[in-house]
Simulated assay, not measured.
Amino acid sequence: MAKLIKLYQDNPSQKHIQEIVKVLKDDGLIIYPTDTVYGLGCDINSKKALEKIARIKQIKLEKANLSFVCDSLSNLSEYVSQINSNTFKILKRNLPGPYTFILPGNNNLPKVFKKKKTVGIRVPDHSISLEIVKALGNPIVSTSIKDDDDVIEYTTDPSLILEKWDKLVDIVVDCGYGDNVPSTVIDLTADEPLLVREGKGSIEI
Rank of each mutant, 00 (worst) to 15 (best):
A2S: 14
K3Y: 09
L4A: 03
K6S: 11
Y8N: 14
Q9F: 01
Q9V: 08
Q9P: 02
D10I: 08
N11H: 08
P12K: 08
Q14A: 07
I17C: 06
I17V: 13
E19I: 08
E19K: 09
E19D: 11
I20T: 06
K22Y: 00
L24V: 15
G28A: 09
G28K: 04
I30E: 01
I31V: 13
Y32G: 03
P33W: 07
P33H: 01
P33F: 07
D35Y: 06
Y38W: 07
G39S: 10
G39T: 04
G41Q: 01
C42E: 05
C42G: 06
C42Q: 00
I44G: 01
N45Y: 01
N45H: 10
K48V: 10
K48E: 05
R55Q: 14
R55C: 12
I56T: 04
Q58N: 15
I59N: 03
K60Q: 15
L61R: 04
L61V: 13
V69A: 12
S72A: 09
L73S: 05
S74Y: 13
L76I: 10
L76K: 08
V80T: 09
V80L: 06
S81L: 11
I83M: 12
I83R: 09
I83N: 11
S85H: 15
S85Y: 07
K92N: 12
N94M: 03
L95K: 00
G97F: 00
P98Q: 08
P98G: 03
Y99T: 00
T100R: 00
T100Y: 03
I102Y: 02
I102D: 03
L103F: 04
P104L: 04
P104M: 05
N108W: 09
P110Y: 06
F113C: 00
F113T: 01
F113W: 08
K115V: 08
T118M: 11
T118G: 11
G120T: 14
G120D: 01
R122C: 07
V123F: 07
V123D: 03
D125E: 09
D125I: 07
H126N: 08
S129K: 00
E131P: 04
I132K: 00
K134C: 08
K134A: 09
A135N: 06
L136T: 05
G137Y: 12
N138M: 14
P139T: 11
I140W: 02
V141F: 08
V141K: 01
T143V: 02
S144D: 09
D147A: 07
D148K: 14
D148Y: 14
D150S: 05
E153N: 10
Y154N: 05
D157G: 05
P158S: 06
I161F: 09
L162S: 04
E163Y: 12
E163R: 13
K164Q: 12
D166W: 10
L168D: 13
L168E: 05
L168M: 12
L168H: 11
V169K: 03
V169H: 02
I171Q: 00
I171S: 10
V172Y: 12
D174S: 00
G176P: 10
G176C: 10
G176F: 12
G178A: 11
N180T: 06
N180Q: 02
S183H: 00
T184K: 01
D187V: 12
L188P: 04
T189V: 13
D191I: 15
E192L: 15
L194I: 15
R197G: 10
K200Y: 03
G201P: 00
S202L: 10
S202H: 07
I203H: 14
I203M: 11
